[in-house]
Design a protein around this nucleic acid. Structure first.
Lengths: 213, 213
DNA sequence: TAATTTTGATTGACTGATCAATCAATAAAA
DNA sequence: TTTTATTGATTGATCAGTCAATCAAAATTA
């Protein structure tokens, strides 16, 4: 069997398998055997390539974050104005892949794990910061800094909250409705807050591409 | 040692111990021994009274919900108008007990568990429904039904989201700020939505006490 | 080209640790 | 004496992680 160069193939297969198994099972309490079986290899091979279960799990969450970033970069490519970029960020957060029940279950499992694993927490903090700071960057083009910060915090919380509520699967809200609710929030608070006098309508100060990376 | 009537005492001690251990450990993957030790009894006794670990965990989440309900009843006692009741609901959600890191960690662990345990999910669904329907009841006194429903959904999501974000402990938001953000949301959306023509300012149609039970 | 050695890929079988759950035994009230 | 409370000891199952052995491609040598 040993065709050389299997390593990257197997690593990817195992990470994908881990994600699927965790999503299905709804917990990180899955066995290496489960994951290896799903990937079509022996448990020993999983240990061979990742050293430990923890390491495989870490790689799995990294892969989840990488995917999210990729989606974000694509979505932000098309956005031109700060307001459009805000909508793009919202839309990405509720992207169909991310909204699949298994993916939500996996995220949730990692959130719980973050209470114990310092490294898992680090990754989730990166995600949380990225979401907040991307929102913030565009809000600052529309509002004074202090208002922008409050609204960024609120929008991030609403996105995460809609996501979590989805995990219970009772009265599922749906992608479009989730986007609409978040947009409503942004519209209402943008309207009720006095706009930034300097930056409004002028050439936006920030239009750097690829901020969300 | 056997003084009769220990059962309720031990049950409570074990449930409290479970909550503390789960909160500290940040996961349901705690052993019966850990819990029993914390409660000052042998692991065998925990099994004697609860039959299984799962059952003890179920009782633990029930106790968490009971506490939340108690707080809510107290907070709603003082509220007079629908708008006051809305604020009371928000305040209760961020009540200090609920906001303690160990409590947040425990909630999170149960959310994750709900992906597997039908019974755990049932309890969390009850919580989610209760939050939504309490918000809804008072919003309907201020707004047309469809707008009320959207805003109830949004507010519930924001509350849960602020809660979850807290669990990462990076840039903690704090109780007061969390309340303020949710109030901002309510104020902004109440202002930007045309009020219910019939009910506004008149004697509210719904002022039944103890709705949040 | 043919024979060989080396190296990467892969696994089955095993180990040690951990835990939920059980149970028989004990001790003290009623 | 019967009932209730309590535990130490044990069991059976589950898993992460290890290891020596195998297999076949690739590299090297003849």
């Amino acid at each position: 069997m040993p065709k050389v160069g299997m390593e990257p193939v197997r690593r990817k297969a195992l990470v994908d398998a881990a994600l699927r198994v965790i999503g299905d099972h709804g917990s990180l309490a899955v066995t290496m055997s489960d994951i290896a079986r799903q990937a079509g290899v022996s448990p020993a091979l999983a240990h061979h390539y990742f050293g430990s279960k923890e390491q495989l799990l870490i790689e799995t969450i990294r892969s989840l974050l990488r995917q999210l970033r990729r989606d974000a970069v694509v979505a932000l490519k098309q956005a031109r104005t700060p307001r459009e970029r805000l909508s793009a960020i919202v839309r990405v957060s509720f992207h169909a892949d991310q909204f699949a029940p298994e993916t939500i279950a996996a995220w949730l499992a990692f959130y719980a794990e973050a209470q114990r694993s310092e490294e898992t927490r680090r990754f989730l903090v990166i995600y949380a910061r990225r979401l907040r700071s991307n929102l913030l960057a565009d809000l600052k083009a529309l509002l004074p800094a202090d208002a922008a910060e409050r609204i960024a915090e609120g929008a991030a919380a609403m996105i995460d909250g809609l996501y979590i509520r989805q995990s219970l699967k009772s009265a599922p809200i749906g992608i479009e409705a989730s986007i609409a609710l978040t947009e409503d929030y942004l519209n209402a608070l943008l309207a009720s807050t006095s706009p930034s006098p300097l930056k409004e309508k002028g050439k936006p100060l920030r239009t750097i591409q690829g901020q969300m990376t």
